[in-house]
Design a protein around this nucleic acid. Sequence first.
DNA 1: CGCATAAATGCACGCGCGTGCAAAAATGTG
DNA 2: CACATTTTTGCACGCGCGTGCATTTATGCG
Lengths: 337, 337
Amino acid sequence: MTEQAVETVTADDVAARAGVSRWTVARAFKKDGVISEKARTKVMAAAAELGYVPDLLAASLASDRSNLVALLVDDFDNPHKLVMLERLTRILRAAGYGTLLVNMLGEKDAPEALLTASQRRVDAAVVIGTQFDDGIRRTALGARRVKQLIVFARAGTAPGTISIACDDVAAMTEIARYLMAKGFRRPLFLAGPNTESTRLMRKDTFLKVWEEEARGARPVVIHVPDYSMPLGCEAVVAHLSALPAEGRPDVIVCENDVLALGAIDALRHRLGLSVPADVAVTGFDDVPLAASPAYDLTTYRQPVTEMARALVRVLNDGGSTSADVFLTGRFMERGSA
Amino acid sequence: MTEQAVETVTADDVAARAGVSRWTVARAFKKDGVISEKARTKVMAAAAELGYVPDLLAASLASDRSNLVALLVDDFDNPHKLVMLERLTRILRAAGYGTLLVNMLGEKDAPEALLTASQRRVDAAVVIGTQFDDGIRRTALGARRVKQLIVFARAGTAPGTISIACDDVAAMTEIARYLMAKGFRRPLFLAGPNTESTRLMRKDTFLKVWEEEARGARPVVIHVPDYSMPLGCEAVVAHLSALPAEGRPDVIVCENDVLALGAIDALRHRLGLSVPADVAVTGFDDVPLAASPAYDLTTYRQPVTEMARALVRVLNDGGSTSADVFLTGRFMERGSA
DNA sequence: CGCATAAATGCACGCGCGTGCAAAAATGTG
DNA sequence: CACATTTTTGCACGCGCGTGCATTTATGCG
């Protein structure tokens, strides 16, 4: 770079320039600071001339509030994560929060990921699409205060955490009833890993509603060790190719869109079946690709924007919130079911 | 939360416990700090007992080095962004850097996005997939030092910035020659927006190589105002449906995968054509979806991991680097061309 | 105009740690 | 064992701003 490093201009410089004290400058920059209109305009003018911008780092140190939240993500394979990141970063920024993106490499990396965040004094650590297990939580609370632990897009169970998520029960009930009404009789449920930290209510709800209301046999469930298109694809191939045509499911209900897209690939390209004529498919999330003509996936849209707004509300409440938040999304009827 | 907020444990506490001074504690935590082995183990033991973790915020304030880099992203529609984010966050974290994810809402939001980052004293601001125009750059350098401006995955031109990207010229040359060898004669080039801040060398290279080596007519180029599947899809529909069958291109060369996926959708689902039998398609980036059987897209993989490593190197050099970095990726031959 | 009240402003102290140098302890040498 | 070196340790000062309270200035009222 050719230009000189600009001297850092501090609140003191602005104060001198405006003929007030440094604290008056600080007040001018606080949205509801008590300060006379005259002083505020003087300060702002001086600040503009000098190109002053408050230093959030120093502010965080002094005030014990960083306006920073850590977003802990452990699965970058799911395009829905990108949707959530877009929404979260946009809405959090508008609300005055910065976002620290932390790549959590897996279960066992969680404590260290959390430490990384806590070292920067984040106001909250938000895990996206996973849960805290209890060990993680203790690490977080122990090492240095991470004031809040929030589980986003998943129902958390650990005490001391609050979760903000889509109302899976309502959603899955709607999907199940839609499929019943459409005349489907032999659903196959394609689920992700069956571990504590990834548990969703989707599978249980679907099974429950289906058994109670369709009076059919208990639907078959297959689990896949990870949410990924190839795994979903292979699982469907393996399951269906071992089945006689008449034992084939008429619809595959998937725990999320990624699995559903994999299932569609399997049906069309590996098994030579047609979707939805031979087998229908439903997903969950409404990733952008679900709307493409290639997949045209019937799915359920998570209310991501509302969830992000709820997160802001929780953050602004500063720890006084304790109840989980569940929001209803929207059923997206498309061509695949 | 039921448990008490743990008292913040500072270096002083550790020092007292270990019977040394605070500065010795600091040295123990610096990987190449001069300190006796005895003192270091004493300090580490005390730190472990107390659960001490250095406060990066205070460290940043004192040292003028935050080990934080801002990642400015302005297009969350492209799944390749998720690939880059995964790689960058993982590799930067391993190298000791935190990552601040900033959602840049558009051209005009860039200065403010940059300010957001600079307020936290980031060591570098990295724009991903866009360029800095000169105005932005001045904002960045002016308001508060953002020590480095780095353009990732795009060739930057602004002075004072360095860019780390895929070698588009080599890549596109390889694609062009492959297509020539395969016998394609009438390529259509599907490009993104034709503005300064998004300029890539891909289009120019393709046209140049094609004209020089295929001795064919200059390929037709169509521009789309934004990199998105629907836009790519519509553009192809509009262009091809106005053409007689014999004037139809035999291959559509796309500036990136998103456009290519849109083009495939257009050909198959809107125009009833077969890919690659009627029209072949190539992309660029190698997004995960490109490998799915539904698209099976021939494309070029950007060397994202190497690019991220190069970024770390640049960061560690602390501003002494000034040359751009171009890395070659890998041609991915698949079924679409 | 005098006094009570409200509004606006100023300031001491601290947040937790890094830098650069000086003092102290350990080590080596003849 | 005295002295020169080297290694190790301690410390004053500052990074830029917030908090809480004391002080000053403006405003209202009879």
